[in-house]
């Protein structure tokens, strides 16, 4: 059986080879990176246009919105880079190809997810970091070491929430023949994440906090750095929610893996 250290070693071995292989499709990498860049830019442009006609959004300034969005871009990167395979789960299940993941002496989720590594997500991560730095300079935020550590922890928690939402939606393929609508829905809901939860009404605010905790993806963490005075005590729950949600997601995945019987032969 593999130890944690061996899993990590194996992961680097597989990804190094995978990236080498992907480098052959340089055009693919460049075009999709540019595409990703522009799609982020489009969201930012919406902010700019929006703030041209209104002075603030429920009390939040443009730069604060940019900061929240930058945080979101960073938090979503691990999901995009490391868990990209989740988008292909339904094809593997439909074709019966998924059966191969049972035959290796490895954790099945590890084996499955390690088969893809999304390079273009790295571009997004870099853009997110740059944007976070820019907005925090413009906002005059200071970053003592303690705050940086909290930032890292907050990013980690938010990433776990995003990964959980994607993997849970993807896992529906174990039971549902066409799981695309479920994935599309999860992908859509996630788009609410870079907005201040306070702009939503009661029902949505409740749902985005407790049912589908996308408030924890960007808003509650960003609030800590932007307006520590207004911070909701919920922020301190973020790591718990991230870890708890991922544990639940892993259970769902495991249930799917165990209940799936595969196609004929």
């Amino acid at each position: 059986m593999l130890t944690l250290g061996e899993y990590i070693r194996l992961y680097f071995l597989i990804e190094a080879q995978y990236i080498k292989g992907q480098m052959q499709y340089r055009a693919d990498f460049l075009i999709s990176s540019v595409g990703m860049f522009f799609s982020s830019l489009a969201t930012l442009s919406i902010f700019v246009v929006l703030f041209n006609s209104i002075p603030d959004l429920a009390g939040w300034s443009l730069m604060e919105m940019v900061f929240i969005y930058a945080f979101y871009m960073i938090a979503i990167s691990p999901m995009q880079i490391l868990f990209d395979a989740v988008w292909f789960l339904r094809y593997k299940i439909q074709s019966g190809e998924f059966v191969k993941y049972y035959f290796r002496p490895m954790n099945i989720m590890f084996y499955f997810m390690s088969e893809r590594f999304d390079l273009k997500g790295l571009t997004q991560l870099a853009a997110g970091i740059a944007l976070l730095a820019y907005s925090s300079i413009r906002l005059g935020l200071v970053w003592p070491v303690g705050k940086v550590l909290i930032l890292i922890l907050a990013v980690f928690s938010a990433s776990l929430v995003l990964i959980s939402i994607a993997v849970m939606a993807g896992s529906s393929a174990f039971w549902v023949v066409n799981s695309y609508p479920v994935l599309a829905l999860a992908w859509k809901v996630r788009e609410f994440a870079p907005y201040p939860i306070t702009i939503f009404d009661g029902i949505f605010r409740f749902a985005f906090t407790f049912i589908l905790p996308i408030g924890f993806i960007a808003f509650y963490p960003a609030q800590f750095f932007l307006r520590p005075a207004e911070i909701s005590p919920l922020f301190y729950l973020a790591p718990l929610i991230g870890i708890g949600l991922f544990a639940l997601t892993y259970k769902v995945w495991d249930l799917g893996v165990n209940s799936w019987t595969g196609t004929g032969s």
Partner: peptide, 27 residues
């Protein structure tokens, strides 16, 4: 155990064959 399917490969699709072998060596 070893398992081979006639219709589906278990090698890493995009990797040179020898790299698949090396990964299996680690696993």
């Amino acid at each position: 155990m070893g398992v081979v399917f006639g219709q589906r490969t278990q090698l890493w699709w995009d990797l040179p064959v020898i790299e698949s072998f090396k990964i299996l060596k680690e696993i």
